[in-house]
């Protein structure tokens, strides 16, 4: 990590404060205090072997005051939201919801792992919902691949063509009738801050 990034990034104390605020903002978030480091989350996670920091280590590193390292790891963006850890944790910790909380902190402060622009999928998705009121699958995929790994535009083309042939890929976005309602809701809800 370069010195320049160090000096411009928020301090660990600020990140911790933001983290606690997030933790209090969903049901049973505070149970993270009861983590016994048993590793059930990591053991049950279908993708922990691909993470640079496992779910158990994520909680340990947060306790050790290394939130920025967590945000710069791929871990939170590899979590596929399967909730296996959440239902098996003996301490009732909402591990998946905690991953979401960490993603929100990362998105708000733009602290991301290097060369792993998964977060841009969320931004593209949110733009589509704001414009159309619905997801636009083809547009989401194409735009994301253009922003992240352009090669995938070509390696995934076969799938796209097969789906278009079966009438299962909409070429144009579908806009809901009262898209102004969605936009008003989003604008108002945005006033409630980063949560």
């Amino acid at each position: 990590m370069t010195e320049a990034i160090k000096t411009t990034s928020p301090t660990e104390a600020e990140l911790h404060a933001a983290f606690w605020e997030q933790i209090e903002s969903f049901p049973d978030g505070h149970k993270i205090k009861k983590c016994l480091q048993c590793g059930t989350c990591t053991g049950t996670c279908p993708v922990s072997q691909f993470m640079d920091i496992t779910p158990r280590q994520t909680i340990a590193m947060f306790r050790a005051g290394r939130l920025e390292d967590i945000l710069r790891s791929k871990t939170i963006w590899i979590c596929a939201s399967c909730y296996a850890c959440t239902v098996r944790c003996p301490a009732g910790i909402k591990v998946t919801d905690t991953m979401y909380a960490l993603k929100r902190i990362a998105m708000h402060r733009k602290i991301y792992p290097a060369n792993f622009p998964v977060h841009s999928l969320s931004s593209t998705f949110m733009n589509n919902v704001y414009k159309y009121g619905r997801n636009y699958e083809l547009g989401l995929g194409v735009k994301y691949f253009m922003r992240s790994h352009i090669v995938k535009l070509f390696t995934t083309a076969g799938y796209g063509i097969a789906m278009i042939r079966r009438g299962r890929m909409g070429l144009l976005p579908k806009r809901i009738k009262r898209v102004s309602q969605i936009q008003a809701i989003i604008k108002k809800a945005n006033e409630f801050g980063e949560q």
């Binding site: 903002s25 969903f26 939201s81 979401y100 993603k103 929100r104 998105m107 977060h119 999928l121 969320s122 931004s123 998705f125 949110m126 919902v129 009121g133 619905r134 997801n135 809901i176 009738k177 009262r178 309602q181 969605i182 809701i185 989003i186 108002k188 809800a189 945005n190 409630f192 980063e194 949560q195």
Partner: peptide
């Protein structure tokens, strides 16, 4: 009639209250 996107996991990853609000519509 005129339902919208539920917000999916991607809104949850960025803006929780916004995500829940569009879901609530």
């Amino acid at each position: 009639e005129d339902w919208n996107c539920c917000g999916a996991t991607m809104y949850m990853s960025a803006k929780k209250i916004v995500g829940y609000s569009i879901s609530a519509r």
